[in-house]
Write a protein that binds this DNA or RNA. Structure first.
Lengths: 340, 340
DNA sequence: TGAGTCGTTGCAATCGATTGCAATATGGAA
DNA sequence: TTCCATATTGCAATCGATTGCAACGACTCA
């Protein structure tokens, strides 16, 4: 018997281990996979040997052979709004839930933050052969690219809105209805001159704005004043400060396009010595965890991100299994706290 | 000439494209890699053909062959504190910077949130053959595991503290000095009975606490009252509320173990009708982006996360290139805003 | 015209694990 | 004792791209 201690992890490949065990590579492979074809004794012996030598099969080779990677791509397309950072709280919250659900199911997560400058950014991702499926956090302004790829690549699910006739599977909430909830709540609080903070190139923000407009129209109050507010976190506060300096005397309530915007607004209003909600009610959108942490606590339109993430993952798994999965649109919900 | 249109992406592999182009697979490979060995005309013809057919090489095969993956693993070990979520703002901020730096350099990011229950969790990651390098966000209580792996696996860099004789490369800040800054600042503001919010099992939190203690001892004020506060975001606020209900009358200043804790504290203090900083000054730790957004703005000890992330990536690249890279400890810095 | 060069291209091995099929051994039945 | 069914194991092809080496052609120069 060769009692030479292994000098420097000589057991790197299946073949190495096979040599040590005195069997063929195929047998080792089957033993490690717990296939019933191998003799139980041999199997246990090989597994013990594998553990002893700290052997781990090369995933690259395994994946090439089996044509499954066990990796899901989570991609954040940053179409307009290039300065928006990956650390945006909404993305991160969504990503956290997604990553949890995915890893629980044994998948790895590959993260991509993409600025879609090349027209084929999405095909480059799905055709890389690296991924078993792709999750898109947001559609940005890339509807055509997404539709084009979805026509031939099934395991693809996006967070966002779904239109009739849309090919790709999208999970999202009814943004127009959500905006309407926000508008109605402000109006019920006596607000007449609403300001909407958010820029309209992002489709979901535009829909929220449309909802606020609808609420205003229905109640017979003037249409809201729309003020562009970008999402890059380092800029929001200055931008809002500028808006407030100029328009604060002409408004008496604020609907923010997102909680991040709402939180920055709270900050700016405090600088102006305005009390929230007594001087100016503010309602946010998203109901991120931080909405609970602000002073005052944020009244906001809740998108159930945890449920959305779970729905996305479920839909993706269904598609990976070859089944079909419909788009989902969830109802938003007004969460009344202290800011409005 | 065969003018049959490609029916369903028949060009999937190098060999397919080679057949279409009438050359061998090797030539196609070289042409696509812009090797000088191939005739410029052939090269252009093949590249045009590749674009026309939307051909993308299978990354799995490429990586198996070249033994490089172009993927960096970013892993968050959750040793103690299992309920801490991936969406923790500190992780996310760090992850955002890391991902930006990595993707700028052409690497993909594989994300893992790990609960190290298996003893070999780290070797399982580094030996998977999937990764060109690994970045650890935090050391948790896994120093031994990290040291063990670092002894034989070079491209590994952690965020955290470095002790003399430590094998693995760690980038971090001087937490004791940071805690001291916080303590000194509170004391200079007239605080005598400091409360420290944070639980001591996490080494970096313990060091910050030690720093606060040192400051107190040096100034001759009583040692701080330490109150356990976990990091799971859904629990913090209740926990702090309980602490405050019990101890608020016995303290006159608060050093928080992190900005997240500080922010929740601000919330709770508002509920108690306490003014910050006039009734109770509060200083945070980290200087996350959200420290700018709170009301009042958070006075805090800054860890330059952006710089830290860059340092981690630089160190990792050096190690991938076979060079060596030392641990780095950066000096924290007190950022005085409005909360203390 | 023949030898030597250079520029291109093809051939075939390789990365490491998986798996269909063939081969062997073992036991039981006739 | 012979034959067959069954349980294990080995062999070799395969996944798709990369790359060292050999081969081929054209061209130059003697």
């Amino acid at each position: 018997m060769t009692n030479a201690e292994p000098p420097s992890r000589p057991v790197r490949t299946l073949a190495d281990l096979a040599r040590v065990a005195g069997v063929s590579a195929g047998t080792v492979s089957r033993a490690l996979a717990d296939k019933s074809l191998v003799n139980p004794e041999t199997r246990q012996r090989i597994q013990a040997l594998a553990a002893e030598h700290g052997f781990r099969p090369n995933q690259m080779a395994r994946r090439l052979r089996t044509q499954k990677t066990g990796v899901i791509g989570v991609v954040v397309p940053l179409g307009h709004e290039r300065r928006q950072h990956l650390s945006d709280p909404f993305f991160m919250t969504m990503l956290g839930h997604l990553a949890d659900a995915l890893t629980e199911n044994g998948y790895d997560v590959m993260l991509s933050r993409i600025i879609p400058d090349a027209a084929d950014w999405l095909e480059r991702i799905v055709d890389s052969g690296m991924l078993d499926g792709v999750l898109l956090i947001g559609q940005s302004d890339q509807m055509e690219a997404i539709e084009r790829v979805a026509r031939r690549y099934r395991p693809l699910v996006a967070w966002g809105s779904s239109a009739p006739g849309q090919v790709h599977c999208a999970i999202g909430t009814e943004n127009v209805a959500g905006g309407q909830l926000a508008g109605e709540h402000l109006i019920a609080r006596g607000v007449r001159r609403i300001a909407f903070l958010g820029e309209l190139r992002a489709p979901e923000i535009r829909q929220r704005y449309d909802g606020v407009c609808a609420a205003a129209a229905a109640a017979g109050v003037p249409p809201p004043l729309q003020l562009d507010t970008h999402l890059a976190s380092d800029m929001v506060e200055q931008e809002i400060a500028r808006h407030m300096a100029r328009h604060l005397d002409r408004i008496d309530g604020i609907a923010a396009g997102s909680d991040v915007i709402a939180m920055a607004t709270l900050r700016v209003l405090a600088d102006h010595g305005m009390a929230v909600p007594s001087d100016v009610p503010v309602v946010g959108y998203d109901d991120l965890p931080l909405a609970l942490q602000t002073v005052p606590r944020l009244t906001t339109v809740k998108q159930d991100i945890a449920r959305g993430a779970k729905a996305m993952v479920d839909a993706l798994f269904a598609r990976i299994a070859g089944e079909d999965s419909p788009s989902v649109v969830m109802a938003p919900e007004l969460v009344v706290r202290d800011s409005a």
